[in-house]
């Protein structure tokens, strides 16, 4: 698929869901956006006065006030900043799973979600960046707030193919190098191998005032297990083969799966991480709109 076609599809999706382009948090940044910075600077919205100290730039001195009251006061403005939104995409081979009836794999679904949310973020002046990884980081795009950045990200996504297993520490080291100060982190993965250690790492990021959102992308078959009869299953990542009577073990499987999801969700809440489950057969607009409601 060409970038242009993909972008056209993304835009049509945006139009469908008409998601309001609001960011959710206050972050520090340099580019003017609608996020309100907590530091005063060269913004346009007046915040407060403070007494003039020697060395302050005279251009910030409120001469009218000085003429009226006789006090030298410096005008402080609330600076509007943009936000660094990082998309962290798991591209292990398990993300390539797609059931017979589904149109897209989990990976494609995640890519589409990134493109849509990226488009929205660019629209409101935020910067977006990408880290896609399996054993190593396969795609890295520095945050940028121009449309070019989105196209770079989309181009990178289109070239990626899920393979191998996910090496989370490698991703974290890369992330920590570049993530800088406050920002927003959207982690898209099936999170089948997420453990407490990994979630602890993400918790560490929240301590550093990062807004971490865990987006678990699952195929409906992974949740429902709608198989019948004696079947052989081969693990996409490990190649492990098991044979089982699918219909008989269906209930047990669903129980295990729901336990896994519950555990993940509980841990995320405890760690002050935002958690959301996305099924790849659901309209993507549904999740984008839910995101809009959050702000």
């Amino acid at each position: 698929m060409q970038v242009n076609e993909f972008m056209a599809m993304v835009e049509s999706l945006i139009v469908q869901c008409q998601a309001p382009a609001h960011a959710r948090s206050l972050v520090e940044g340099f580019i003017n956006g609608i996020h309100r910075g907590i530091f005063s600077g060269s913004g346009t919205e007046f915040m407060q006065y403070r007494p003039y100290h020697q060395g302050d730039e005279l251009k910030h001195l409120d001469w009218k006030l000085y003429a009226r009251v006789g006090e030298k006061q410096i005008r402080l403005y609330r600076e509007e900043t943009n936000c660094h939104c990082w998309f962290v995409l798991d591209m292990s081979s398990s993300m390539s799973y797609r059931n017979n009836t589904s149109k897209v794999s989990k990976f494609e679904y995640a890519c589409l979600y990134i493109a849509c949310l990226g488009w929205l973020s660019i629209k409101q002046g935020d910067s977006i960046g990408l880290i896609a990884y399996n054993e190593k980081v396969n795609a890295f795009v520095e945050p940028g707030s121009r449309r070019d950045t989105l196209e770079t990200i989309v181009l990178a996504l289109l070239k990626l193919t899920p393979a191998g297993q996910a090496n989370h520490p490698t991703m974290f080291s890369t992330l920590q190098e570049h993530i800088g100060n406050r920002g927003k982190l959207s982690v898209l993965s099936d999170m089948l191998d997420f453990d407490d250690t990994l979630l602890g790492c993400f918790k560490h990021l929240t301590v550093l005032h990062h807004d971490v959102e865990l987006l678990q992308v699952l195929d409906p078959y992974e949740q429902d297990f709608p198989f019948k009869g004696g079947q052989q299953f081969v693990d996409i990542e490990t190649g492990q083969i098991i044979e089982t009577a699918a219909l008989e073990v269906k209930d047990l499987y669903q129980l295990r799966m729901s336990e896994h999801l519950k555990k993940l969700q509980d841990t995320a809440i405890q760690s002050q991480l935002h958690y959301k489950l996305m099924l790849s057969d659901q309209p993507i607009a549904q999740y984008l709109m839910a995101k809009g409601d959050l702000s």
């Binding site: 996409i236 009577a245 008989e248 073990v249």
Partner: peptide, 18 residues
Amino acid sequence: TGKPIPFTTVKIIPVEQP
């Protein structure tokens, strides 16, 4: 049992002999 079905959550699939 037919062709093996590629799947992701093989780890948590309970094994029961058909």
